[in-house]
Design a protein around this nucleic acid. Sequence first.
DNA 1: CGGCCCTTTGATTTGAGTCAATCGTGGTGG
DNA 2: CCACCACGATTGACTCAAATCAAAGGGCCG
Lengths: 233, 233
Amino acid sequence: MAVVASCAECPGAVRELGPCLLAEQRVRLSGAVVAHTFRPHESVFHEGTPALAVYCVATGSLKLFRRLSTGQETVTGVRGAGDLVGLRGVLAGEPYARTAQTLETSTLCAIPAETFLHIARENAGLAMRLLARLARESRDMESVLVERGHQHSLQRTAAFLLRRFRGGDGEGAMVDGDVLTMEREAMAQLVGSTVETLSRALHALVRAGAIEVDHRRIRRVNDATLRRLAGER
Amino acid sequence: MAVVASCAECPGAVRELGPCLLAEQRVRLSGAVVAHTFRPHESVFHEGTPALAVYCVATGSLKLFRRLSTGQETVTGVRGAGDLVGLRGVLAGEPYARTAQTLETSTLCAIPAETFLHIARENAGLAMRLLARLARESRDMESVLVERGHQHSLQRTAAFLLRRFRGGDGEGAMVDGDVLTMEREAMAQLVGSTVETLSRALHALVRAGAIEVDHRRIRRVNDATLRRLAGER
DNA sequence: CGGCCCTTTGATTTGAGTCAATCGTGGTGG
DNA sequence: CCACCACGATTGACTCAAATCAAAGGGCCG
């Protein structure tokens, strides 16, 4: 993991903010940003605490979740290198609604809320870009949560695997060619299920010939079958 | 229902766009906007169709939902007078993700996507305001959908009633003092359940002494009990 | 080699959806 | 004005997916 010298070199800043920033803003941003490396399963911020900063993911990945009164966690999003985290809280001017926790060792840059809002206000291009991004994130999250409510665990598991195998980029891939390696616990949370149910779903997918499972390594065998079981046609 | 002569008098435009608009923009908006009155249960737009306009609700209310492959509808939001509808689709530059359907007779003004985006781009204050609104809507929707996944129908029903009785404003209230009048079908959709299950939940709430039910009129009797059963403490 | 943790498998429970039948109301037409 | 009809609401019986509870396998590390 390389140390990020300035925002000019950070893949995250480049992807989201970079193309829109004026030279002067770029300098200001670099000056205000604080980089920090988190170990796996460390929290970046907790739901309910004031949204003081937007975080820009330089390397690694995190999950965003809510902890319910019953104690269980509901994952509502995953972010990887180049993504912004904590955006909603800062823009809404309200406390974070979710907790952000690293899935692996990750480096993030904290952009103070003040700085972030200032730059966005001065820069129409950036503001429009953020609007588009927020709109897209919102719709994606909605899709996932609606699916959870109405599709069976087998379908959801298949759909999850497809998403992972396809989108090799961001979102903390953990995909190597046709093999996905992942703890059952983490995977169950992302699918929105339990470890036991997930295990049975994977078994069913193996029986159907869609994948092969060897401990925590899952190999993609037959995409067409996977798609069919995921409900795509 | 009064005919809306111009955006200057429209409660919707005033609430969301008004405070930010320059005089020149206000004129331009009034010129581009098309008002139309929809009857109950009419669709304003369908999921999957290109997002050509943002709609501003002048009077009435609508529900936003997705239709699943199985044919059932999942309501993910409700909008009332003063709200904007179709914002996400236009901002994301993608087709609408949901279908918008009136719950009652409603008047909406269609703002062409072009016009809307132009005005937002020229007006930093408006853009920031939209960012805040989108962030808040996104978080609210997330709350509802997460609740649906992890709370029992009784809790959800109680929480729904509380929300309705409290927020007497927007969202197509249908609340008169302590009495809420609503068809079971519509209510079940908003709670994210079925008519039968909802009926049983209401019955349970009656037994608990939280409410009284007389046909489709529901009277609030004991808020504390309602809150307790909703999971608030 | 032994212990521990992750995973799998099995048995049981349960919440809610579905199907089906009844009830009550409100509206309509005779 | 009353009887009847139709539709929404309620209640009951049944089914089912998935959570939960419980126990047994299998690697991996000390």
